[in-house]
Design a protein around this nucleic acid. Structure first.
Lengths: 73, 73
DNA sequence: CTGTGACTTCTAGTCCGTT
DNA sequence: AAACGGACTAGAAGTCACA
């Protein structure tokens, strides 16, 4: 578990956008071609996820990836 | 070597910002507390780097991390 | 539908050296 | 100063059963 202020902040932002779009974790995971549990653990700030998956998630939410960095240094 | 359109685009942006600040790869690496060779391979688009290191690099360049996502989906 | 612990596989990331 | 190779260790990726 790689929790940190940064992964937690990122996870919260991701969750906000997902809920704003009305997706379940499962739906988002499917759209991003990632595993349901993986998306869940990202939202909980437990994963220090890498660039490609950040882009996948942004695409799945129809967002520019920059938007997921709101609130981060 | 994990080259992809995304890692290449990210690497180019990073290089542009680094050069604009007048840092060498070595200086940037030191400021970001990362290895010199690692920063080089990121700039060449060979690394699918993770969130924490994206933030470290942004901080080292005195940039908001969002700026490193210019040109990415 | 989501959270959690545990697990295996794969790669991120470090460090030596040379070009 | 930067690119590149080999070898290594830490940690990300991805999946499962069950709560």
């Amino acid at each position: 578990m790689a929790k940190s202020a940064i992964t937690i902040r990122f996870g919260k932002t991701l969750r906000e956008y997902r809920e704003a779009k009305g997706y379940s974790q499962e739906e988002l995971a499917e759209r991003a071609d990632l595993h349901r549990n993986y998306v869940g653990s990202v939202e909980r700030g437990e994963r220090n996820l890498a660039l490609e998956n950040i882009i996948k998630l942004a695409k799945a939410l129809s967002l520019p990836s920059r938007d997921l960095f709101r609130g981060l240094p």
